[in-house]
Design a protein around this nucleic acid. Sequence first.
DNA 1: TTGAAAGCGCTAACAA
DNA 2: TTGTTAGCGCTTTCAA
Lengths: 345, 345
Amino acid sequence: MADTSRSPQPRYGARPTMKDVAARAGVGLKTVSRVVNGEPGVTPDTERRVREAITGLGFRRNDSARVLRKGRTASVGLVLEDLADPFYAPLNRAVEEVARDHGALLINGSSAEDPEREQELALAFCARRVDGLLIIPAGRDHRYLEPEIAAGIATVFVDRPAGLIDADAVLSDSMGGAREGVAHLIAHGHRRIAFVGDQPRIHTASERLRGYRTAMAEAGLPVDESWVSLGPTAPEHVRAEVDRVLSGPEPVTAVFAGNNRVTVTAVRVLAERPHPVALVGFDDLELADLLGITVIAQDAARLGRTAAEQLFRRLEGATEAPRQTVLPTRLVARGSGELPPRPGA
Amino acid sequence: MADTSRSPQPRYGARPTMKDVAARAGVGLKTVSRVVNGEPGVTPDTERRVREAITGLGFRRNDSARVLRKGRTASVGLVLEDLADPFYAPLNRAVEEVARDHGALLINGSSAEDPEREQELALAFCARRVDGLLIIPAGRDHRYLEPEIAAGIATVFVDRPAGLIDADAVLSDSMGGAREGVAHLIAHGHRRIAFVGDQPRIHTASERLRGYRTAMAEAGLPVDESWVSLGPTAPEHVRAEVDRVLSGPEPVTAVFAGNNRVTVTAVRVLAERPHPVALVGFDDLELADLLGITVIAQDAARLGRTAAEQLFRRLEGATEAPRQTVLPTRLVARGSGELPPRPGA
DNA sequence: TTGAAAGCGCTAACAA
DNA sequence: TTGTTAGCGCTTTCAA
């Protein structure tokens, strides 16, 4: 059996440390640290010996230890609703890009619209001592974050504002966007318009409903409460609700869909109908241009980018009062929202 | 000024530690640790005092320190191509779910199909001492991971196999899926079929091309190399290539699109054409049913789930030789792939 | 230019 | 049942 005691080799499961590197290179621990971190004050010859030891041992700095000592983790946490949702995925990516530009890693997780899970994730990120936190909130009470924020974890809310605490937030203009979309339908002759949206405890859902009511009121149109549907966005539920508002003696002639999932199902249901029904959806969809779906588009990537930039501004020391940023939406007319009411309807 | 020295208060930026909690509760450090970690051997009364101190100080365990001591981080890293890609987003979510089931957090990042960035991310995750690594590789040489794997970081490749090292991999049947899709077009009368795919250094792209060639050969059909286009999937490029294969004296009558991004652009281009052109795309798309797009569907979520489960099996000690798992694809006929060649073409 | 010693906040091992 | 001590791997401080 070969004697390997003079120059330690990497063993399975046991990682070499700076101490091992120092021993192998015949230098002090601090010298290794200097080389690894590119600090000055090391002669080229010493540096070479250290680098050889690093390569020979397969050393990689343990950032856990570094974090413990330095206090900063160079990582940010993002809690969103669903990593797989086509609306949030670009937002996620935009946050990642900004984090990368600042040398930070991104930890993320899906709340699945469950306030408990949101809290669980956010606090787990805090326990990992992320430098900052971006949250698309599911819950309406964020006082659980007060100790974390007080302890210095920068926090920015995205897409929906914080509940019961004062914090930075970056939002889309849900109310204004919905109002514009509904006004667009009214301008094309509709008087009976349905609103099918997400659960009312979700801020964006209630804001969009408010936009709907505002547009109707501004046009002097009454709202029959049977036209309004707020609930889960599972396809079966949306399908039943769209069918419902299109039935009865006085069916609606147009539908305003409160988010991307509702729009997707609404398009499917309307495609099966014998007569065309006008539709405007909140959030854009891939291929919506080919299907001629009129939408109120939000820029999800910009939402994420803006929020992440605000986060890093805080991390760099910005101390103004919490601010709310509202980004505009954009009406994209593609046909479905310009259909007139069916004659006689 | 009030004297707060007797019971320390949380100060901005300075988090209380277990030591602070112990002092405030009048117990030893280890007792606090026991309470925080739910270990037995603490009287209810002591526990109550400790909990009060925890709440009073806003204490939260520092997992960085815990990680350093325990050696395990309860986190896994995922390197994928693009967090925002509709194909990878569900995969990401599926990995997250499995990680959650195992009490682990997920760190992720996008390589943007750049081998250097892939390596940078993977090694950054290793430096954070993730327990395991899931990689959708951009590069073709993964020897840089050898020291990490030797040091015990479990690694599973997803969607594409590892290059130059022996490692677990979970893949879709790219070759078989493409072969089935092209055979489907041939069965509907096509003899001149284009293949428009991603860059050939990407494993799935070359495998799909192999499937195309296999299907053509099996039908005894020649392949004109001008029908084959492998390159960037940026819309402008795909648009030009699709236009190209549809031009000239003997244009193709059908297009096989090598991935979701190519399909999206191909659908747009073909919609502008005066005559219908058959299309089968690799990867399913949202709303593809309404547009009648025939596809070879992969189950991205299953790909992610399977890979993550394999990863945790390794983390729990499974030591068999690296294994490659291939998941089947599924042809979904919706109309575009069943169009016959234009008469006379 | 280099290195020794202390300590970040926690858990493991052991003692009382 | 409870507490004390050592030490995880690194950076900071200070001395040589």
